[in-house]
């Protein structure tokens, strides 16, 4: 057919394009923008807990340093390295999706979820030991080593709430990554449409960033001066 206007030939719309978008690029950018707006609510959600931490640490620095000294640093440090490795495999997943490497994409997503599960198992062992040491706030709480056990308990409360909510995020993240891995394996995410991989990646990296701040604030506060 002859085009008198000299415009480029009409490309049939992609089966991945929803009707309300002009093209796949606009659709992808809209999805990413939406994901970042969700993440900004997450930043403020965790931000409120960080605010509580800063306030109480500012008021009770000695009790916080003593309580932080009782953290099981080997678990915290190992988990930091594990999450960073999982962020690498997640980033490489996005690249594999862009290159159209279906099997590699599936494998990398599964490895990411497995690393997340290793983090969770570590965290479970850590919580268990803290339970045995009576460091869980409540009627059974004991921390006689501290000069100020009552305020050290505030540190432990923040520790369990912050790491607990982070853990919930990681469980959700691992579940979504595995779901995406299943659909990736089934061939649902070709290079032209891999937005779900990109967006679950954004979530995964965000959860990693939260841990990047939790690690020094909970584990590294003057643990040597105990």
């Amino acid at each position: 057919m002859h085009h008198s206007h000299g415009t480029t030939e009409a490309v049939p719309p992609s089966r991945y394009l929803a009707f309300q978008f002009e093209d796949l690029a606009q659709q992808r950018e809209s999805a990413t923008l939406g994901m970042w707006i969700f993440l900004s609510t997450e930043i403020l959600f965790f931000g409120a807990l960080f605010t509580a931490y800063f306030i109480y640490r500012g008021i009770y620095p000695k009790a916080f340093a003593e309580a932080s000294g009782a953290m099981l640093i080997k678990y915290g440090t190992a988990n930091t390295f594990i999450l960073i490795c999982s962020s690498l495999t997640m980033a490489l997943s996005v690249h594999a999706a862009q290159m159209g490497k279906r099997k590699l994409l599936t494998l990398l997503l599964v490895v990411t979820a497995v690393l997340g599960c290793v983090f969770l198992v570590n965290k479970g062992f850590e919580y268990h030991q803290e339970w045995l040491e009576h460091h869980v706030p409540g009627p059974g709480f004991e921390f006689p080593e501290s000069s100020d056990p009552r305020h050290a308990q505030i540190f432990f409360s923040l520790y369990f709430i912050m790491t607990g909510i982070h853990t919930v995020h990681l469980i959700i993240g691992a579940g979504v990554v595995l779901t995406i891995a299943f659909f990736a394996w089934r061939g649902h995410y070709p290079p032209e449409y891999h937005t779900p991989v990109e967006n679950v990646g954004l979530y995964w990296h965000f959860v990693d960033i939260v841990w990047v701040f939790l690690y020094p604030m909970l584990y590294l506060v003057a643990h040597r001066h105990f």
């Binding site: 990413t32 960033i209 020094p216």
Partner: peptide, 24 residues
């Protein structure tokens, strides 16, 4: 120093892993 290192790590994660450097 610990907070500065954490902020540096978070920034490079956001810029490169999360593609903020190349975002709209």
């Amino acid at each position: 120093i610990a907070v500065l290192i954490a902020a540096t790590k978070a920034t490079i994660i956001a810029l490169f892993f999360m593609h903020m450097k190349y975002a709209e």
